[in-house]
Design a protein around this nucleic acid. Sequence first.
DNA 1: ATTATTGTATTAGACACTTAATACAACAAT
DNA 2: ATTGTTGTATTAAGTGTCTAATACAATAAT
Lengths: 123, 123
Amino acid sequence: MEWNITPGRPVYLQLIEQLELAIVTGAMPAGARVPPVRELAAEAGVTPNTMQRALQELENRGLLKAQRTAGRTVSAGTEQLDTLRRQRAEALAQEFWKQMQALGVSTEETAALLRAAAEKENV
Amino acid sequence: MEWNITPGRPVYLQLIEQLELAIVTGAMPAGARVPPVRELAAEAGVTPNTMQRALQELENRGLLKAQRTAGRTVSAGTEQLDTLRRQRAEALAQEFWKQMQALGVSTEETAALLRAAAEKENV
DNA sequence: ATTATTGTATTAGACACTTAATACAACAAT
DNA sequence: ATTGTTGTATTAAGTGTCTAATACAATAAT
């Protein structure tokens, strides 16, 4: 798994986001075993403590399940993950729209900017 | 000016964002005088120190200009503000598109979600 | 010239985040 | 039964953010 930790925001929050993304997109499918805390921490370049904090938060949200020496697994079902993915997409769209409104960008221009962003991706 | 400071992210960064938004959208037009640090701080419910930090950062970016007892003014020109507004909109679109891609949401569905967000705004 | 306003700087303390280093607890594997 | 793996907890220290209180510096207004 690839990690992208940037300064300026709490690391454990970034870990949570990226882990959740990996889960809802199927990179870590339902039922799959999650690598050990120490391994994930080494990968991400953080302390086991910090990674532990992120994992526990995801466990609180019902996405992961720790079983002592048997390691962690993705406890959420496929349906639940799909719902989460949808919710996340809706929230992103909502937020994006809100910000464009705040900037005073029209509906048409917003659409145009999105098309431009899509084109730009083809690099 | 209305402030919306939420915990979890550095306050001075939120101040910078909201001040910059007010500037590029014309709420604080080019050449306008900016209220004193102490006043802005009281409005936003933060310490003058924190507000000062945000204002100085905006000064570093060339948006504001401090003139001792004459107070601060918006030093950026209208054209510059327009450019900034455009850049910000483009960056937002780019980022939104990137995140939808990461979530595996199709182009059509992205458009649909955006329409839904636009409708929802009519409350 | 004096005064009030405004920007700026300094010091101290509280708090959250993060690292580092260990140690402990549970249990699968052998 | 022993061993190794894994999750969990603890303590200490460093760093950045934020508040609080205060003082200083420059200058517009009078």
